[in-house]
Design a protein around this nucleic acid. Structure first.
Length: 96
DNA sequence: CGTATGACGTGCA
DNA sequence: GTGCACGCCATAC
């Protein structure tokens, strides 16, 4: 039985560049549709350089937060090709 | 073992 | 449309 963290990290690392996913979707794919809370926690505590955690946004299409700073996350997403609205929303498509 | 926290989500005023 | 409050899971202390 893999820890939630392992599943989450794996799914996040599977996200293609230029695309984003949501905490809820990841939690659902991880096997716990109600664990989006834990998903965010895992990513926060486990800052892995090989995990594009900045590609994970909220279900509202909002960028959400980032351990390094939300601004940083937005900048990375923009570099990836994701367009962020003035309201902090990712107008680009999400999921893989 | 029990309490508190968190990069959240949804509902209601 | 905006703001507040409650609910939820897993992990850390």
């Amino acid at each position: 039985m893999k820890s939630l963290q392992e599943k989450v990290l794996r799914l996040v690392s599977q996200i293609s560049r230029g695309k984003v996913s949501t905490y809820k979707e990841i939690a659902k794919e991880a096997g716990s549709p109600r664990a989006w809370r834990a998903v965010g926690n895992v990513l926060n505590k486990n800052r892995d350089p090989k995990i594009p955690c900045h590609r994970v946004i909220r279900s509202d299409s909002k960028v959400g937060g980032y351990r390094h700073g939300t601004k940083r996350k937005i900048a990375l997403l923009k570099k990836e090709g994701i367009i962020i609205n003035s309201h902090g929303k990712a107008t680009q498509r999400f999921r893989k």
